[in-house]
Design a protein around this nucleic acid. Structure first.
Lengths: 218, 218
DNA sequence: GTCTATAGTTCGATAGAC
DNA sequence: GTCTATCGAACTATAGAC
């Protein structure tokens, strides 16, 4: 009994609401905008109630993170079962809402030592899952002398998607369309013909790549 | 006379010290760690003096930003005069200290409306300068059907370098070495033979790429 | 140019009533 | 489960002495 203080049940409806509201706050205004008062106001409750469910703010951040992390790992696993796994992974990765939240947590991890370890460990697990699924679904990927190594590809997908969401709000969009087109070219080469020496892949030029402007629940 | 309040001279030694101290704070602990108190403590003065030189904290942030921005534009222009401009640009871009600071300002811009415009405008100017210098120094770059378009390349350099500094502190380094090697391959192809159809470029495999662990002035 | 002192705000967290 | 009330700390910014 280190902590005699009361805490709300995991199954609580209100608890879920607080997590949801906090997630939205982080995405829209950044982690620095999260306080017991701001969350309480957005949820229509009093600040004290935040601390009833989450003794410290770090507990709240971690709850938001864990909730999203589980969903992410599950979605990522599902994505690799699709007919074109690389394309599906790419489209998942460039969903703005999802990526913006991830960026906030990466920034938060640098400044709140208390939660850095958990975010760091999850990030490694997340990328390891990508690597394993990629290796099992596309065992020949990256074997050619001119190919992108699998690990590099996965890093690039993450870095590029975070690049989009970091630059977009600044109105900095130079090179975004060109990069999307470039990725589209690579996806055609890899996902359809499984390394079919890029012949003829350059022919069809009509882009089926629609923007990743996902369902951002306001 | 809108503001009758006193303000320190631009040439002041103390003013320069405050800018320097704030820059270090931002790099090491993030923009959220900057307050009149934290800066004052790190500089060995009192909080009131911060407001003497910088009426609001936004003024301080902007001063730090402008100081670095001017240096950056100048360095970037110089880099394009070197024998291997692309390699020089890449090496400049992956300097951790420089890139970490840039990332902090991009995050800050999303959350402090008052300074977003200036950071956004500078970012566009910065990339435009890259594009112009690239076009003038390597006019043939990106003209081949399989080449990376110049705008995409510049976006990628920025996104990848910010990816490194965002992931490193989390111990997330999967794909970093592979990406550096991949970049090295591209640089050999582009910078030496100017689009020499990548023949023979694959031969030499000894990497001269040394880590971008730059002089981080503690 | 630098300080002390302080007003006014917001924050995290807790105690205890209902 | 939710609230009121409140403590103590940290913050931005200002006034004015030195």
């Amino acid at each position: 009994m280190v902590s005699p203080r009361r805490t709300g049940a995991e199954s609580s409806r209100t608890r879920a609401l607080l997590i949801h509201v906090t997630e939205r706050l982080m995405r829209q205004d950044g982690y620095a905008a999260v306080s017991s008062r701001s969350v309480a106001k957005a949820a229509g409750v009093t600040p004290a109630l935040i601390h009833y469910y989450f003794p410290t703010l770090d507990d709240l951040f971690l709850a938001v993170f864990r909730y999203g992390a589980e969903k992410n790992l599950a979605r990522q696993a599902r994505v690799f079962t699709e007919p074109q796994p690389l394309r599906a992974l790419w489209e998942l990765s460039v969903e703005p809402a999802r990526t913006a939240l991830l960026s906030e947590f990466m920034a938060l991890a640098n400044h709140r030592k208390s939660i850095r370890d958990e975010i760091a460990e999850y990030s490694r697990r997340f990328r390891r899952q990508q690597a394993e699924l990629l290796a099992s679904r596309l065992p020949d990927f990256g074997t050619g002398p001119d190919d992108i190594p699998p690990a590099a590809l996965l890093f690039l997908i993450g870095a590029v998607s975070r690049g989009f969401v970091a630059e977009d709000p600044l109105g900095l969009t130079d090179g975004h369309a060109e990069t999307r087109a470039l990725v589209e070219r690579l996806l055609r080469r890899y996902d359809s013909g499984a390394l079919a020496a890029d012949t003829g892949a350059r022919a069809a030029e009509a882009s089926t790549l629609e923007d990743g402007t996902a369902e951002d629940g306001t």
